[in-house]
Computed example of a mutant assay.
Amino acid sequence: MSTRPAPPARHAAAARVLLAAMTWFIVYGSLFPFDFEDAPRPLSSFLGEADLFANRADAIDNLVLFVPFGIALQASFARVRARLLGAGLGLLVLGVGIQLAQLYLPSRTASLSDVAWNAAGMAAGMLLAARIRAQLANQMAGQAGEHDNFLLLLVVVWVCYESFPFLPTLDVGLLRAHARPAVFAPPFELARLLQHAAAACVAGCAVMRAGWLRRPVRGLVLLGALVLLLEVAVPYGALRRETLLGIVLGLVGGWFLAGLGGRRAAALVLPLALAMLLYTVLTPYRGQWRGGEFTLIPFSRFLWHSALGVLPPTAFEALAVGALLWSGLRLGRGPALGWCLLVLIGVGMLEVLRVALVAYQGDTTVLALALLLAPCAAAMRPHPRRERRRPGLAPASP
């Protein structure tokens, strides 16, 4: 009796990482902005909302939200029993459980119909993954060379920077108000264009050089389309034409840099990352208020004031620090890496000078990010693969 072979361990591990990420995103997207109350609404309000088509926009949101979860679930497990068990637990915890938790959120409406649309989205994702499983495995087979997982981390940071707070909407009124500045444009901001172009350039180069995609150009185009779609569909702040244009130009620049080769690309990413890092320090990019204070506690405004709006600037800083570390390691453990460390120390000193000279708030955020990312950059650094010699065969002559 022939049995279907289990997916390679590398592909299953990647799928389970996606499964964990989608689980986190579903929890985050369903409970944001986390304004819980002590007393819940009655359970009857959840059971009474059973009309599947009462709110079409909300129905589509709940359907689409669980499609990637179903795809990751299908790809994570080889056995049908494990998939069905995962689907049942997912629907119970992420479907029913989150809807019950929404009874404590005044900004959310718990609905039994949402659970039904969650189940439909998960089933659609599993069926879709089953049909395109071979194509997905072929695309994820990767290039013949080494894999650079730290670059994947930088891509995730870039997506967080561009897509916060990650909650798209189909509300036409909100989308119209969000997109209005891009059509009826305020004055063109060159700094905004360069800022988004630099970040996208690093991310584009990371996608191309990570080595996980068999067709990295196609992956770059799809990722760019997804981020542009989220820029439009997530009504946070105002949509600006400089942002959209900067993303496109930056991804093209990242594709060009990646084509120059590993060391040459790293040599050009190094000054780009340095410019991004200096931009965050020499300007009030993080929205520092006046007061001339310096604290040794990083992310002080984020922790003390619950200002989630500072997450994108912090992600921009993390992308700059990560790109600086990556380029230093790629260029070697000698002068390049030493210069990167000196730059990070210098950036910390600039924070102090900014407080003393300009009277902006300063902290150790940049140094904390470096301490967090440096072990990841070192641990995820790719090593050249050794060719396995078949027994009984002599090594090839030079």
Rank of each mutant, 00 (worst) to 15 (best):
L103S: 09
G287S: 00
F36H: 12
L245E: 03
A197T: 06
A374W: 11
L190W: 10
P68N: 14
V355K: 03
Q195Y: 15
D51H: 04
S300A: 15
T243Y: 09
V202D: 11
L105Q: 06
L47K: 05
D35L: 10
L153N: 01
L393R: 10
E231K: 08
S327R: 00
L357H: 12
L229D: 09
R330L: 13
P313D: 01
V202E: 03
L369R: 00
V321E: 02
A20Q: 04
P165L: 07
P298V: 05
P33R: 07
A129Q: 03
L152E: 09
G246T: 01
E317Q: 11
Q74M: 13
G332Y: 11
G253E: 03
L136D: 01
P165W: 06
F294I: 02
R215G: 06
L303C: 08
I71Y: 06
I345P: 06
A266S: 07
T3H: 15
A9M: 11
M208A: 05
W255C: 06
L311W: 07
R381I: 04
L344F: 04
R388D: 09
A75T: 11
E387T: 02
G70V: 13
G261Q: 09
P313T: 04
L371K: 15
L190D: 01
N149H: 07
P312C: 14
M349H: 08
F166K: 11
G259F: 04
S300F: 14
A78V: 04
S113D: 02
D363T: 04
L274P: 09
R385Y: 00
E351M: 02
A177M: 10
G334Y: 02
A225W: 12
S163H: 02
G254T: 07
L127N: 06
L84A: 10
L19F: 13
F46A: 04
F256E: 05
V207M: 14
M22G: 08
L190K: 01
A134L: 15
V155H: 03
G261P: 05
L282D: 04
R10H: 14
